[in-house]
Amino acid sequence: MLWYIGRRLLQVIPVFLGATLLLYAMVFALPGDPVAALGGERGLSAAVQEQIRSQYNLDKPFIVQYLLYLKGVVTLDFGMTFSHRPVIDIIAEAVPITFRLALMALVIEAIFGIGFGLVAGLRKGGVFDGTVLVLSLLVIAVPTFVLGFVMQFVVGVQLGWLPITAGRDPNFVSLLMPAMVLAATSLAYVLRLTRTSVAENISADYVRTARAKGLPRAQVTTRHVLRNSLIPVVTFLGADLGALMGGAIVTEGIFNIPGVGGTLFRAITTGENTLVVSLTTLLVLVYIVANLLVDLLYAALDPRIRYA
């Protein structure tokens, strides 16, 4: 098992090199001159631009820039932004906030998605099942920003129950509404996955055997039906963590959360290439780790799966 984890973690190195090289090549190929744009409408004088370019190695050829970046990364120096701040500081500010938000969303969608999905699956074709299916379809169909604005206006402005924005103080309470909005779409998917899976397993042979043995109903449901139904759901949740980290840009924008999505978007528009590469690489790593966790969870859920 440990050997397996170690081998999987070693794979991170080639993935990291490949990802940074590809990303670096892509941001390098982006049109436009970020240094010239620093001056706004007035523009910067050629001399100042030249000075800034040499300061950030932007006057060197692509491969030299990339190797200098790698050299920095090895010594944990991810470079500076044009605003003279270490890239690592910016990442260290944005990532924890988004991670907190993504984790809250993940917990919400896991608890409610699996819970409702289980009930719906057990009573397939019932009123609860029908209602939940229609509602989840609705949630999938409504764009995030519509849901966000409606919740902000109703829950935030009119009822005044929760803060509208989380920018000044992203704590548990202020992140609750954004986490719910962020979780909504995935929640609907988790619910539907669980429901289908549970409905399928409930008529499986081993469930009939368990019942025939005289096991209590609750134990059959949790231990036999649910546990076996969770494999596809866990796969989805694992991939979703990565998506929630990098893809929360719309939600972060609406709720003014200074997280990864907004930082990445600004970095792309202002041509902060080292920040783009570092942040995106980090997201790649999150995906890798989340996938590893999912694989390990498989073994916990299904004893037949062993890693060596």
Partner: peptide, 19 residues
């Protein structure tokens, strides 16, 4: 307190809510 907003719509909502 100079509060940073990425989105002017959000700031407007906060103004209306008295925040």
């Amino acid at each position: 307190d100079y509060v940073i907003y990425d989105n002017e719509d959000t700031a407007y909502l906060d103004l209306q809510a008295g925040n």
